[in-house]
Design a protein around this nucleic acid. Structure first.
Lengths: 103, 103
DNA sequence: ACTTACGGTAAGTCATGGCTTACGACACTG
DNA sequence: CAGTGTCGTAAGCCATGACTTACCGTAAGT
């Protein structure tokens, strides 16, 4: 049950916006804060949440800190959703059979 | 960008608990409320959020309403995370190559 | 028709969390 | 060793949303 922190982290639109910026590659905090309508400390707080969820990794480069996407946290979340997906499909198929029989 | 409602819905622990109950099969509201530490109206509100996100479907059966897992909302969410996963892997691989070269 | 059961909606309360400003720690440059 | 730039943390404010109780509509039973 470690996917809970990951999904909670990705539930926030601002944090998803940060993740979107990082899809192109690693970036420092200041650059991320520049094209977002919030302050730099707010960005730092969001980055901490994403890092704690295993979704980001940090690489200090001098005074700056490069954040990059990390597969770790995403892996658990995807595994959980895959399981859900299977059960949802089963439920859908069962319902389809009932309807086909004339309910 | 329709996965946002789905991920927001699944971010709540109580709603995930409801989804877990429904993995075994369709159930009416009262049964779901009985083995959860919250009131029945609260369950109704959560079920509405999950339904609006395309994660659940309703099937009225007389006075009762059966809720079941729906693949629809889950599909978009999985697709989004799959894309993220690819980019995270790329970033990870790029970083691994740099480290192998001696940073 | 009256009663009982099931469930959605309304209104109000309260905690969570996202944002701000202010401050401190650390690395580079002159 | 100042001075500057980058970033994390602390404290406080405020909106969002997850609950509650109260109420209403609807379906089935007697």
């Amino acid at each position: 049950m470690a996917y809970d922190t990951a999904i909670a982290a990705l539930a926030d639109p601002t944090r998803r916006a940060l993740v979107e910026r990082l899809r192109a590659g690693p970036q420092p905090v200041g650059v991320l804060a520049d094209d977002l309508p919030i302050s730099r400390p707010a960005v730092s707080q969001h980055l901490k949440v994403l890092s704690d969820a295993g979704l980001l990794e940090v690489e200090p480069q001098g005074a700056r800190r490069l954040y990059r996407l990390a597969p770790r946290g995403l892996d658990e979340l995807r595994a959980y959703l895959d399981g859900l997906w299977d059960d949802a499909l089963s439920s859908f198929a069962a319902r389809a059979r009932e309807v086909a029989k004339g309910s």
